[in-house]
């Protein structure tokens, strides 16, 4: 089972990202589960959302404490939240930032990668909505999910032009991650 924890701020679409990831994983033939850690819902407050992906049906309902992957939508959260907490040594943390991974002094043995999702979002979608872009980066950096499945899930949720632009942004983030890996 692979466990993913998404850190964001209220209004940044972390919960939507977790849900779309679950939809995409299922399209890939895996069982999946996505749920939020609800707090006091207000814009700007730190939020978490979780996705599990597994070959078998998923029964476990607890929150995720030892994730395989962490996605950080907003790097300013790193000062407030222990985003790498419990992250597995062989895991990966993906941070939305224009800095190099070495910029972040995280207490983890896991791989740290950064992607400038905000820039991609602004360039392609025209708005600083990074959640779907980061899913593209997740697919590229981890290989856990096919980018086509993410794009399909996003287009189903946001039909029309919005979905198309998101799909383009997802592909770009995916490609950037693939190149960085190679």
């Amino acid at each position: 089972m692979k466990e993913i924890r998404i850190h964001g701020r209220g209004g940044q679409g972390s919960v939507t990202a977790a849900e779309l990831l679950a939809v995409a994983a299922f399209a890939d033939g895996k069982f999946s589960q996505a749920f939020p850690a609800f707090g006091v819902e207000r814009r700007g407050a730190p939020v978490q959302a979780f996705t599990r992906i597994n070959d078998e049906p998923i029964r476990l309902r607890s929150q995720i404490y030892e994730p395989d992957y962490v996605i950080v939508q907003d790097p300013t959260l790193i000062e407030v939240v222990d985003v790498a907490g419990g992250l597995k040594d062989d895991g990966t943390i993906i941070i939305n930032s224009d800095f190099d991974p070495s910029h972040f002094k995280l207490d983890t043995k896991a791989k740290v990668v950064t992607v400038n999702a905000t820039k991609i979002a602004l360039d392609i979608i025209g708005r600083p909505i990074v959640n779907t872009v980061l899913l593209g980066a997740f697919a590229g950096a981890t290989g856990e999910i096919r980018p086509e499945s993410i794009k399909k899930a996003v287009k189903e949720r946001f039909p029309g032009k919005v979905g198309d632009r998101n799909a383009e942004a997802i592909q770009q983030a995916y490609d950037m991650m693939k190149e960085a890996k190679a």
Partner: peptide, 10 residues
């Protein structure tokens, strides 16, 4: 509540 009402699963 939430655990099932707000979970996405197949």
């Amino acid at each position: 509540g939430f655990i099932l009402s707000h979970v996405y699963e197949p």
